[in-house]
Design a protein around this nucleic acid. Sequence first.
DNA 1: CTACAACTTCAAGTCCACTTGAAGTCAAGG
DNA 2: CCTTGACTTCAAGTGGACTTGAAGTTGTAG
Lengths: 152, 152
Amino acid sequence: MDWLTIGEVASRSGVATSALRFYETKELIESERTEGNQRRYPRATLRRVALIRAGQEIGISLAELGEALSTLPHDKTPSKSDWQKLSRSWRRRLDAQIEEMMALRDELTDCIGCGCLSLKSCAIFNPGDAASTLGTGPRYLMGDDSEDAIRH
Amino acid sequence: MDWLTIGEVASRSGVATSALRFYETKELIESERTEGNQRRYPRATLRRVALIRAGQEIGISLAELGEALSTLPHDKTPSKSDWQKLSRSWRRRLDAQIEEMMALRDELTDCIGCGCLSLKSCAIFNPGDAASTLGTGPRYLMGDDSEDAIRH
DNA sequence: CTACAACTTCAAGTCCACTTGAAGTCAAGG
DNA sequence: CCTTGACTTCAAGTGGACTTGAAGTTGTAG
């Protein structure tokens, strides 16, 4: 096995050395040290870093990534089943996120369609969680007086 | 026109009073004051706040929302064309984001499909920006020696 | 009139993901 | 051997979006 310096990992992964050191403090990656106390990373670290960036893209926090990656070996290629478990769960997450965004888009499209601002019927103005616990629906959020609305 | 206290806006919008005051310092919303220096918000503020939360969902920063909302009146319902301009641009943004996520998902799906970790062909391991400026493609990121790969 | 919840300001704190700077050490080419 | 660039640690800074706390004031129900 050959080893990479932090600079090599940085340039090959596109991640700053400061970020790599930071990841190391968070135990997302690991290194050996030379006699002179410099870091040397196993090649598999490149994949690990790539995985971290991909995970971040999906919206996974470093803390959570740390947990997910803690099951994978630092020094060699993860097994097929390791990888499949991870990628399936990420895929589910991504699916959920896409669905959420598409729902938001559809709502927005409806709003554009009607051009209204009364929004008694406009879902985008219903933030759900906060209002829904009070069980009052959209009009709760938007108020209910005619002054608010443009009729159409 | 009737006026809402900060607590009323908070409970009706699902946004903390501290957040509303914070928005006010950022000039996202505006209030009048009573004799005793308490805030009173016009009803239209509810819509404005809803717009802010919707925008944040789409991933728009408060700074940018401030700009977008600065074209809208604080004290009354925005015009149909104001709203359409805003919602169309948000819609475009949302479309782009959805597309990005779907691309990521497809890549991830391919990865699950093959179960491989060689990833010479795996787009998810190609972070684009960082590597692409160096014009070296995926193998740049992932290394090129057989040790890295699980063959299939 | 009094109690008490709701409000006020201002400074400081929090969380996340890093980056920056200072001061110093290591490694490799000439 | 010497220079130079890449590395080391540790503390502090950044930015976005708020939240929290302290100390004091206002508004309203009883």
